[in-house]
């Protein structure tokens, strides 16, 4: 029954996610000339860029799970394009996201093997602090990601990941010394860091908290977010994603509502939603 519901909500082409991916990137790229030529004030550009940065990850997440198109399907190129064409904005190669995220699914909440384990924290304030702390040069998260990539036999991705990081710094420096330091700071550097806090909080910490169980039906949960479904980017229904990662993001709320009695019977961690 659970599988039948999951199948019912999967397999369709998620056009919303494709429009989201490229529309978001187009808006962010358009911000640069608009701000530089004073069409849009920098403070407004900063707000829009922060939203843009926060919106980058989820389309690539669907692509990581081959939801746009599976290997061998006609639109497979589009699945890969959604991933590769957009993750550079948040300074990580698509393949690194894919490999580490699949390891997260395989080893959810495992202190040794889950590359996202550093998101775990005792409460929301601690989660925000930890997200900032883990992005410092001595943070453990980068090492966990590199180790996950190595465990998957994809050491070839490590120099590419370093290249992305250095390329980001190089572009920021070139823009800054070219007279666009404030634009680089407020349209990319700061929005990126705010977005990473937001993404770690809502996509990693909140759906897994307290992150101390590893069983398939217990390692994530449903929960009611004060920011609603859009403000929490659909993560209230993250349990459905972990159980059936082939369901498109936009279909997880409907799948959850239909699946809820089954999840209850399986002793899942369900919030008041």
């Amino acid at each position: 029954m659970e599988i039948a519901i999951a199948r019912k909500h999967s397999g369709m082409f998620p056009w919303e996610i494709v429009v989201w991916a490229f529309g978001n990137m187009a808006v962010w790229l358009a911000l640069w000339p608009l701000v530089i030529f004073d069409v849009v004030p920098l403070w407004l550009g900063f707000l829009i860029a922060t939203v843009n940065m926060s919106l980058v990850y989820l389309p690539t997440h669907d692509a990581q799970h081959d939801i746009v198109a599976r290997p061998g399907q006609k639109l497979r190129w589009l699945n890969e394009l959604v991933g590769h064409a957009t993750t550079w904005m948040i300074v990580t190669p698509f393949e690194v996201f894919r490999v580490t995220h699949l390891q997260h699914h395989r080893h959810t909440n495992d202190p040794q093997l889950d590359p996202d384990i550093t998101s775990m924290a005792s409460g929301p304030i601690n989660a925000i602090w930890r997200s900032i702390r883990e992005r410092q040069p001595d943070g453990k998260r980068t090492n966990d990601y590199l180790a996950a990539v190595a465990r998957a036999g994809r050491e070839d991705l490590i120099p590419i990941a370093l290249f992305y990081k250095l390329g980001h710094v190089a572009i920021l420096c070139l823009l800054a010394w070219g007279g666009f330091a404030l634009e680089a700071f407020f349209l990319w550097w700061l929005p990126y860091h705010i977005a990473m806090v937001y993404l770690t909080f809502f996509l990693s910490w909140a759906p897994h908290h307290p992150g101390n169980e590893q069983a398939r039906y217990r390692n994530t949960r449903s929960w009611k977010s004060a920011l609603g479904n859009i403000g929490s980017m659909g993560m209230q229904f993250h349990i459905v994603h972990h159980l059936h990662p082939y369901i498109p993001l936009v279909r997880t709320p409907a799948a959850y509502r239909e699946m809820r009695p089954i999840l209850e019977a399986r002793n899942c961690r369900l919030g008041k939603i």
């Binding site: 990081k165 420096c173 800054a176 330091a181 404030l182 680089a184 700071f185």
Partner: peptide, 18 residues
Amino acid sequence: GLPLIFAFGFLVPVIMQG
């Protein structure tokens, strides 16, 4: 050496232009 590169390559002009 990234912290130093970032500081002199990015932070310095950000502070100046700010």
